[in-house]
Amino acid sequence: MMVVGLTGGIGSGKSEAARLFSDLGAPVADTDAIAHALTAPDQPALQEIAKSFGKDALYPDGSLNRAYLRQRIFSDADAKRMLEGILHPLIREEVANILARNASAPYQIIMVPLLFETGAYAGLIDRSLLIDCEESLQIARAMARSQLAEAEVRAIMATQCSRTQRLEMADDIIVNNGTLADLEKQVREKHEKYIRLA
């Protein structure tokens, strides 16, 4: 079984591409979705975060204050390492479970936004697939999707590999500057390629 690491900068269209691969029958392990599930109310990881980051990390209803945590980790490298130390081992464990459950599939996808930045999945993936788009599009899409200000999107982009670096490191590239139909066509081509390679 082949494992493809799907990545791309904020607003590049990773989630849409992953959904299209899933529609074609490829199992997808989405590390962001796993992280969200792990930080749901009453989850052990959420209690650990509250213990490490204090009461401001939670809203009064006990849910995670993502805005507060985002601000903390973007302004404090130690805080970022602390959060990663809590979440990353649990995320990797769940990814391993998903891969094991779908072991009969020709290929599987792990969607990792910071695939190249962390190197955490280097030993697990056989190929990397970059969803790429113009930086102006990234900013516009991220602002529209997440209601972030342009400065916030640019701050997030500054913590990620540059577009040039990602293009150099990727085994495969989908250019997502166009319509959903353009993206669908390229996803289908890659799907057929991965079936052949597997």
Rank of each mutant, 00 (worst) to 15 (best):
M1F: 10
V3E: 02
V4D: 10
G5Y: 04
T7C: 06
G8D: 07
G8T: 07
A17F: 11
A18L: 09
R19F: 06
L24I: 08
A26I: 07
L38N: 12
A40L: 12
Q43K: 14
S52W: 00
F53Y: 06
F53I: 02
D56S: 13
A57F: 09
D61W: 09
G62A: 07
G62E: 09
S63M: 06
N65L: 07
N65S: 12
Y68E: 09
R70I: 01
R72K: 14
R72N: 04
R72W: 05
D76T: 06
R81Y: 05
M82D: 14
I86T: 09
E94W: 04
N97G: 13
I98E: 05
A100C: 11
R101M: 14
N102F: 12
A105S: 15
V112I: 15
P113D: 08
L114P: 02
L115W: 03
L115D: 01
F116D: 02
F116K: 03
Y121D: 05
G123R: 11
I125K: 04
D126H: 15
L130R: 00
D132E: 10
E135Y: 00
L137K: 04
R141A: 04
A142P: 00
A142Y: 00
A144M: 03
R145W: 01
S146F: 03
A149I: 02
A149E: 14
R154E: 10
R154K: 15
A155S: 14
T159V: 03
T159S: 15
T164R: 12
L167K: 15
M169N: 12
D171M: 07
I174Q: 11
N176K: 07
N177P: 07
N177R: 11
G178M: 08
T179H: 11
L180S: 11
D182K: 02
K185P: 02
Q186N: 13
Q186C: 11
R188Q: 14
E189G: 06
E189M: 13
I195Q: 15
